[in-house]
Design a protein around this nucleic acid. Sequence first.
DNA 1: GTTTATTTTCAATTATTTTTGAAACTATAA
DNA 2: TTATAGTTTCAAAAATAATTGAAAATAAAC
Lengths: 166, 166
Amino acid sequence: MEFTEAKDKFIQTWGTLATQWGINRSMAQLHALLLISPEPMTTEDVMEQLQISRGNASMNLRDLMDWGLIYKQLKAGERKEFYVAEKDIWKVARQVAKERRRREITPVVEVLNDLKAIDATTPEAQEFKRVMEGLSSVVGFADNTLNAVIRAEENWLMSQFLKVFR
Amino acid sequence: MEFTEAKDKFIQTWGTLATQWGINRSMAQLHALLLISPEPMTTEDVMEQLQISRGNASMNLRDLMDWGLIYKQLKAGERKEFYVAEKDIWKVARQVAKERRRREITPVVEVLNDLKAIDATTPEAQEFKRVMEGLSSVVGFADNTLNAVIRAEENWLMSQFLKVFR
DNA sequence: GTTTATTTTCAATTATTTTTGAAACTATAA
DNA sequence: TTATAGTTTCAAAAATAATTGAAAATAAAC
């Protein structure tokens, strides 16, 4: 396969995968592009490569910074801002795990805790409580797993352990 | 909190969470509703409870069956079809892990394998290859983790182990 | 066979999300 | 200070995804 073709396919594939996981395509494609770029890129660069507008680029670059996946870089004598992706791919994974946990899991854990506190008089309420308790444990498991990823660096053991389940 | 209120809050919360993970709201809400219902429900029942159309109900109930999260049930003497959710919450989790793996992870693994096979002549191509290899290992890790969940039943050890990282 | 109850399909509509682009803003340089 | 280069914002437009509803299909009952 041609390099240019491979690059396009990667950016495309990454964008599609992201969409299925609730992340918008431009954001994923920007990330993909910066990941494989050996050089820092300007807003102009990414706009041209992905054929997207300035506004779109600006907003999604900012979101990527909020997620801790890319950084702004200044070059001496240059007025423009350059962007570089975090290249340590495990750090990227940890960062994604961290953010999704914070934004999505934690709030749900709280709601579930509230919900399992109702008093179960009717059969419906009993069933409800049972389901809430079950979900709590599953969500708790997901939470632990994400934490395991987040702390994988400190826990060499973890990654070794998971290999067992190949 | 009132039971009816709790029920609504749960269905609402579940729908929102699902949206953030790329699953449509109706499907998630249908699932939530059936999960907490002690009795099998007809299409009419769910339409009324969630205030959605027949078409919407029909399509999403079918999707939920494709995901292996709910079952059709026939009642003697009744012409209508009844739906029940899989109530074993760990089975639900395994099923979701299984399906997402099959639909999303596996195809990406294949693409990445293709992409890391290009020959790296230019610095760009070298960087590209490096990133593809890194991503392969991360996606491989995700794959292993999902597999661990899928086989959790057989692997009591797994769940115990993850508790360490609480 | 026909009638009737129920489910499914899918084109059209509606809702939601994403993207655009130009104006407003910021900061550096002259 | 004013001009200039670059960035951000956000209302409007476009694209995408979800939902409706009525017609078609299916299947049980007669």
